[in-house]
Design a binder for these strands. Structure first.
Lengths: 404, 404
DNA sequence: TAATTAAGTCAAGCGAATTGACTTAATCGT
DNA sequence: ACGATTAAGTCAATTCGCTTGACTTAATTA
């Protein structure tokens, strides 16, 4: 990250950058619109028919895109629509949580093709990494059984774990201090031979919503993730925003009032951890998911009380997010059972007034996103896919050739 | 903004985009580093010496860049450093506030070359526009007197006014309802023949800090602006972020507690408006600036009480901003006298703990930015400069040729 | 004084988009 | 039914900006 030279400057670009960008624009257009003809693509991307033809030809020979049957629509020669080939690329996603790890393999479209989970020792990363590498090896084999091309089409390994990252003072058990200090990325890179990237769990959730969920094709969205902790994944200008040090959106640590250090962080009131505490549940209980679900369906008073309390704070969080980001929509996702998440969203209504309260909205101010416990791993896997195929500013820049 | 075609896609790019980007990268590098040789630029931007040579030659013949005396430094042929030419481009900035409007002319480096101000009728935009056009004409003439090239090098008119924009329900006097409904940009574009852009006042403040202030060369910064209202200008990934509808950062409307609609917005407690009310000052008083300054220097008890109260809420705002954005620094700017702003920043310390509280910071968590009342107009003027010369993702994209 | 190092130029080459004419294949109008 | 029209897509030549590699210039170092 730190330059040898003290000169600050962005990279320039050249025709490779141009070409890379245009390829990515094609892929994104097909992802967002399903299937498009070359002529459609030319109009949508402002490129010439010829340029599009060349790029599509390339993508097709790379196995990323395939032509469908020609369709007649009105006058003129019938068009040949193209769509993405799901098997065109794969990625592995890894979720590391306090006591649990999950690995998934996904394809270019974000479909989960293989999955595996295991328990994890909270304080022994070196043992944990063995488990993780085993898990990754497993989904990788499953993937290879599905597609013979899988290994050569594997674009990377995405890791999601609870943040924030890079703080020294953390002895909080929630923050998995032993894991924070462990050279995880290097170890995984060495152990898998893959490119490895890291994001926090709420960012992963947002990435998941973006590839296959409610944020698909939305350029400005905030994804509130209510898990063991609570965080926000920020989609700004169509890209995930992670701040100056990768910790943007860690709103669990936000204090709920100006009163100062004595005041309560949001995480202590609106997170599954707080729910477990409120209900006296054991986070390591294997049936906890079912238990929560039952309590919601039975309208258990203590559960309902927690929901009301959490909704109170979350309603205000949404208000703040809307006021600060002016997003097109806010998505609430959670690792909790869907019935619980749904009740939570219901209890958050009516929402507080804000600038989002505008006439002519096309998206709801608040919507319920996924509650699939696997979605963090999915989002982790989606990150390398996005890095490899989405149109990003950074993708046009020349990369510094590694020094000696 | 709305496509005729329902197909969603980003624009592609071509060699023009490449070239535009590289030119902008050169300009930015010179802006951030002062003066660089072609060889320096080649190293910093990853381009070849030859490419840099060609671009610099172009920039020089466009009058944006000039070569200095060769310097000997160690072995090898002496290098010829180049620097930006301030007179290479100009822009006009316009601040529209409740009772006041200011216009400035700036050069490529962000130096203010001409300025003018006038009173404004709060409820009569059509009369107001006459005044504004007169003001703009004035600074434009002043500018022409300085540089004969000024007209052909004028890249645009930037307008800053209090937000939020695009809301219907606003009858709040603070929000200048009559002006919100008036077709301001169209009228000004027609009246001046310039490209016109709009941002809110806090965004303008951030833009000002970025071109000539504490945010110069910082990629992740949040600029808190305490003016008549209060807002935050967001510099994310090196670009101003304005949200889905241009209202990002309008934190003045943020409610201070989860309690709901009855609770107080930040703006009512930490803004100059609240100060005026607290002290019983008349916002239209022409000596109000001096009066505030005197009260601070005299340590007037009511003034100190307001400072303590506002600092209390602002301290918490900084905490929230740090938690949400993870910026490299937070900058407090204000239209208040510098002594007052300085006291405010002092009163905000010690800051609340947050993830920004990390070891090895290079920038302070909170710093005092400009308190020049003209900085909003300056920031407004900097926006067209930035649009024209900074490396932006949008700048590489092909632009849709206007439909028939 | 020669070797070395670095800045910068020259001229040919290359790659990706552009241009404009052309081909193909459908619908529309009479 | 048949020509006119419209639209998708290809072909071949062109253009434009970056790259390549050899070369020139001008300084420091041994």
């Amino acid at each position: 990250m730190d330059d040898i030279s003290p000169i600050r400057a962005k990279s320039g670009t050249n025709q490779e950058g141009t070409s890379a960008h245009n390829r990515r624009v094609m892929v994104e257009a097909l992802r967002l619109n399903g299937a498009l003809s070359r002529a459609d693509l030319a109009r949508a991307t402002q490129l010439t028919k010829q340029a599009v033809s060349n790029i599509i030809e390339d993508l097709e020979s790379d196995g990323l895109v395939v032509g469908l049957d020609a369709v007649r629509k009105g006058r003129g020669q019938p068009s040949t629509p193209y769509r993405l080939v799901p098997e065109g690329a794969f990625a592995i996603g890894l979720q590391i949580d306090r006591h649990l790890t999950r690995a998934v393999a996904v394809d270019l479209m974000g479909s989960v093709l293989a999955r595996a989970e295991a328990n994890l020792p909270l304080d022994e990363p070196s043992k944990g990494v063995e488990i993780i590498l085993g898990l990754i090896g497993g989904v990788r084999r499953d993937l290879a059984a599905i597609s013979s091309q899988s290994e050569k089409r594997l674009v990377g390994l995405g890791v999601a774990m609870p943040g924030p990252f890079g703080l020294e003072n953390s002895d909080d058990k929630w923050m998995m201090p032993a894991w924070q200090k462990f050279p995880l990325l290097e170890t995984l890179a060495a152990g898998t031979g893959l490119n490895v990237g890291l994001q926090n769990d709420s960012a992963a959730c947002a990435t998941a919503e973006r590839i296959v969920g409610a944020a698909h094709g939305v350029d400005h969205a905030v994804c509130l993730y209510v898990g063991y902790g609570i965080g926000a994944g920020l989609i700004l200008n169509g890209e995930l925003y992670s701040g100056g040090h990768g910790n943007a959106g860690e709103i669990g640590m936000a204090l709920l009032s100006p009163a100062g250090p004595g005041s309560t962080p949001l995480e202590h009131r609106a997170s599954l951890a707080s729910l477990y505490q409120h209900l006296g549940l054991d986070p390591e209980d294997r049936d906890i998911y079912q238990r929560m679900n039952d309590l919601v369906l039975a309208e258990n008073p203590r559960m309902m009380a927690w929901i009301d309390g959490a909704a109170h704070d979350l309603r205000w969080s949404v208000h703040l997010i809307e006021t600060i980001f002016d997003p097109q929509t806010v998505i609430l996702t959670s690792g909790a059972p869907q019935a619980l998440a749904r009740r939570l969203v219901e209890a958050m209504h009516p929402l507080l007034p804000s600038i989002a309260d505008r006439p002519g909205r096309s998206l709801p101010r608040l919507q319920l996103g996924t509650t699939d416990p696997w979605s963090i791993a999915l989002g982790a896997a989606a990150a390398p896919i996005s890095r490899a195929f989405d149109p990003l500013f950074s993708a046009i820049l020349k990369t510094r050739s590694s020094p000696a």
